[in-house]
């Protein structure tokens, strides 16, 4: 039958359920970004560079000078590095969404009777995939320079789950910023918010070393909760104190960012 496709001059879409096409549209657009990733792997390279350099720098230059009590600095540092890898990836997501919205191809997508939200979902899933690649590289690099975690397999799985939730929710936030930004410069500026969020957290230092005011902010902000959770899991320490707040924070953020991004995308050109 395919041999005669359009033989009468008319090609029609196939009849399937709305759900079938919703899944198909989303898959196709995820495929689009995975394809971009294989075409230009440098997008991920730049996002990995910074945390990699930081890991090495902190490990070998400052590591001896910072006392984190109870464990080596590299073991303490690793959680922060993993979180920074995810935030760096999200900066690239903001830029990718912003530039994609300037491309004509998105106009074409919008003029097709397909699932609107698949365009953004494609970016999100691509961001999570890039995040997983970055995390794998960082963990490998960490092991190479003396990272010796003490968590069990279960702890590792929980760590993975936490970081994937973090990457997923943060990608929606990144998409919102990319949709709001009017220019590349605007997107870079907004991306800085994401980029600096881990620096005002416990990624590098313990909160109780900070002055009042800053200390309270750092203790309660959502990125700190993720850092503390991942650290507790990796070092086999009690996790509940930061684990639940982290979960609640990032599910809540997702609940806001997801509908907001979808809405912004639909309204964007009207």
């Amino acid at each position: 039958m395919t041999a005669t496709l359009g033989a009468d001059g008319i090609v029609l879409p196939e009849k399937r359920s709305a759900l079938y096409w919703a899944v198909s549209d989303t898959r196709v657009l995820i495929g689009r970004h995975v394809h971009h990733l294989t075409r230009s792997p440098d997008q991920i390279f730049t996002a990995i560079m910074l945390p990699a350099v930081m890991l090495l720098m902190f490990r070998f230059m400052f590591g001896g000078a910072i006392d984190v009590g109870g464990t080596t600095y590299i073991n303490y540092l690793m959680a922060g590095i993993l979180v920074i890898s995810v935030t760096m990836i999200s900066v690239s997501t903001t830029l990718a969404v912003q530039s994609d919205m300037q491309e004509g191809v998105v106009d074409r997508f919008r003029a097709i009777a397909m699932l609107d939200s698949a365009v953004i979902t494609g970016h999100i899933v691509a961001a999570v995939i890039r995040g997983l690649i970055a995390l794998t590289v960082m963990v490998g690099l960490g092991f190479a320079v003396g990272f010796r975690p003490s968590g069990s397999i279960g702890d590792w799985l929980l760590t993975l789950g936490m970081l994937v939730l973090f990457a997923f929710s943060l990608a929606w936030v990144a998409a919102v910023l990319g949709l709001v930004a009017k220019s590349v410069d605007g997107a870079s500026g907004l991306g800085l918010i994401l980029m600096f969020s881990p620096y005002a957290s416990t990624a590098f230092v313990q909160a109780d070393t900070l002055p009042d005011g800053l200390r309270q902010f750092v203790e309660y902000q959502p990125v700190t909760q993720v850092v503390d959770t991942v650290r507790a899991l990796l070092l086999d320490q009690p996790v509940a104190a930061s684990g639940w707040p982290a979960l609640i924070w990032w599910v809540a953020i997702l609940c806001v960012a997801y509908p907001l991004a979808t809405r912004l995308y639909r309204k964007r050109f009207v």
Binding site: V11, P13, E14, R16, W21, S24, D25, V28, L29, G31, R32, H35, H36, R39, S40, E103, G104, V105, D107, R108, F109, I112, A113, M114
Partner: peptide, 21 residues
């Protein structure tokens, strides 16, 4: 209005699938 990172064929296949072929 095309994806300039894709080839011509890849564009057509991607858009064909979004047109529900």
């Amino acid at each position: 209005a095309l994806d300039w990172m894709h080839t011509g064929r890849e564009n057509l296949i991607m858009l064909g699938r979004l047109h529900h072929l």
